[in-house]
Design a protein around this nucleic acid. Structure first.
Lengths: 339, 339
DNA sequence: TTTCAACACGAAAACGTTTTCGTTTCATTT
DNA sequence: AAATGAAACGAAAACGTTTTCGTGTTGAAA
């Protein structure tokens, strides 16, 4: 077992100073060709690689990005991470991932943990609980300490920082508008509780589309689901008890569950009922019928977020206090669940 | 913007030495109560938190686990990460995630990057390309440097280290055995190319089950897919051209694609054809019909891998050179695609 | 009064780098 | 022969900790 070799060991072995070794390896002209080559050969032989931790301490830069997300077993968040990781890697950064599990406390603990030197900046999406509590002191504090933060998807106006989002409101509006244009009148909405920012925005888009087209907003057709694990019965009731033309769901899980409920009651999709979901994930693609969705390009969001963060990190320190909000384009991916 | 405060700054502010500050914060009895309280109050006021990087350098421990996986936009790997992250977090560890994108070179680069001090140990699953090349020197080298490695799922006998796997062979055998017991005779296999370790093992299990039951192994019923993105046509041909009783697929993607192909040709699942998949993921759950699968508990695998790694890290340094291979239990999750 | 603990604190090394600023040596110029 | 200057290298600080080992000041015991 040969342990990693350090500058000190090389120096001792070759009977020169640590400085000489360091300079030699950096091809400094200060060192004679003789010693330079000798040191380099020795270093290569022993496979010397500088210690990242020591470099981090010296440079006050870790070249690491911290990512805090609510969960990872979730197609959208997984794609975002993928985007972040790739862009980070291209730029010589590594990625530390922490899960908040939708919990405020875990979000706080994880952020404080990482903020103490482990990383250079954050990319994060708020947990449900944090959105419910509207308590963001842990994030503003970190920003105040001079650490850049980029938020994505689940963001809030209460924090000033760079953000990457989609236009949830508009995307929902367009989706519902499409349904209306195709003749649907009785359109149900399956959404989350209001404190989830994106859920609220999509709900607003739905309502706006109805109003724009002089359709009544019927609260019986709006289902707000708190506990995602027990949504089947609620959705089944909604579909069974109302003669619905179409369903707009704010995520794919609700969409596929609606389709399953319809099929259970012999309602044909899309002939008798159209369904549009949100987030173009794996379920929508492989469900039967496959589901028309609003695409939400997680890869792009991740890449954009990483790019913004790295640019801040490498700009000359806070030269520009103007924070930006980038809006990622969405579009409707038409599949079999709409006619 | 108030930057993070250090021991040195506190020391200067209170006109004591750095040592005194450090000891005070650690409640050392060496320090008088007076100064101790004074220092603690000041530290609290300025929200002092020790710098992780400095601690890592001093302790030669980063309290960070490196994870290398082929991709993350993949339900199984996402669940594994989830398991790793939770167990790591419980034990005060953080997780750095790197994606190899199924590429040998990226796997090597990422590992070398992290091995230079950034992490205490690795958890990894081999990329396809690495499995194809059978070149593992980058991993053995890291192990030789004294860094613990735990491999999961896609492992190899060529490396001596801790491992976490499922019994792919047995699980496949049992799945096919179940099909046979229910009267199926013409059972197709949709699998990967042989160099993917788990694909090969599952293929062997399929063959073994047939042979055990004196059924002929018909190569026309075995489809080995290289390019996962273009599997539809191949699978459709397989199903169209053979009157098949059942399909055993080595992942859920193949399984759902088989079902779609069947439905396209008006073959009813499960009435005319049963389907069993592998990896109990989100597709299987939400497909129509939902798919019977061999469960492969990624959370448990991740937790187990993290546990083994942390135990090695915190044991008294290589006290035990015996590496273990943990086998995670699987079982058949029965759904609608089998009768 | 001397001696010796106990007490309270500080200096310094160590972790592994990079980099600035000497210092020594030797050859060249005046 | 003295002065200058380049060439080649080393010492030391710095990043932020922890910890060992002093050291100076007390008070009490001898």
């Amino acid at each position: 077992m040969k342990r990693k070799v350090t500058l000190k060991q090389i120096a001792k072995e070759l009977d020169v100073s640590i400085s000489t070794v360091s300079k030699s390896l950096k091809d400094s002209t200060e060192i004679s060709e003789d010693t330079r080559l000798k040191v380099q050969a020795f270093a290569k032989l022993y496979n010397y690689k500088p210690n990242n931790i020591a470099l981090s301490l010296k440079n006050k830069k870790t070249k690491t990005i911290g990512v805090i997300i609510p969960e990872i077993v979730h197609h959208f968040f997984a794609t975002v991470i993928s985007g972040i990781e790739h862009l980070a890697n291209e730029n010589g950064y590594n990625v530390m991932v922490c899960l908040s599990d939708e919990s405020f406390d875990k979000e706080v603990i994880n952020m404080e943990m990482l903020a103490n030197g482990s990383i250079d900046g954050f990319i994060l999406s708020l947990s449900k609980e944090t959105q419910l509590k509207r308590d963001f002191h842990h994030i503003t504090e970190i920003i105040n300490q001079g650490m850049p933060v980029v938020m994505f998807d689940r963001v809030t106006n209460d924090i000033l920082c760079d953000k990457v989002i989609i236009d949830d409101n508009l995307a929902a509006f367009n989706a519902v508008q499409t349904l209306i244009e195709r003749g649907m009148k009785k359109i149900a909405l399956i959404t989350t509780v209001d404190y989830v920012s994106v859920g609220k925005l999509r709900t607003d888009g739905y309502i706006k589309a109805l109003k724009t087209n002089d359709l009544k907003v019927n609260n019986e057709l709006i289902l707000k689901i708190e506990d995602i694990d027990n949504c089947e019965n609620l959705i089944e009731d909604l579909i069974k008890n109302n003669k619905i033309d179409a369903v707009f769901a704010v995520n794919e899980l609700f969409a596929v569950t609606a389709i399953k409920a319809a099929s259970k009651h012999n309602i044909k999709v899309p002939e008798e009922m159209s369904v549009i979901g949100f987030t173009d994930g794996i379920i929508s693609k492989y469900a039967s019928p496959s589901i028309t969705t609003v695409s939400q390009n997680g890869i792009k969001m991740g890449e954009k977020a990483a790019k913004m963060l790295i640019e801040r990190l490498e700009s000359d320190e806070w030269d520009d206090e103007q924070f930006k909000t980038e809006v990622i384009e969405t579009h409707l991916v038409e599949r079999e669940s709409t006619k």
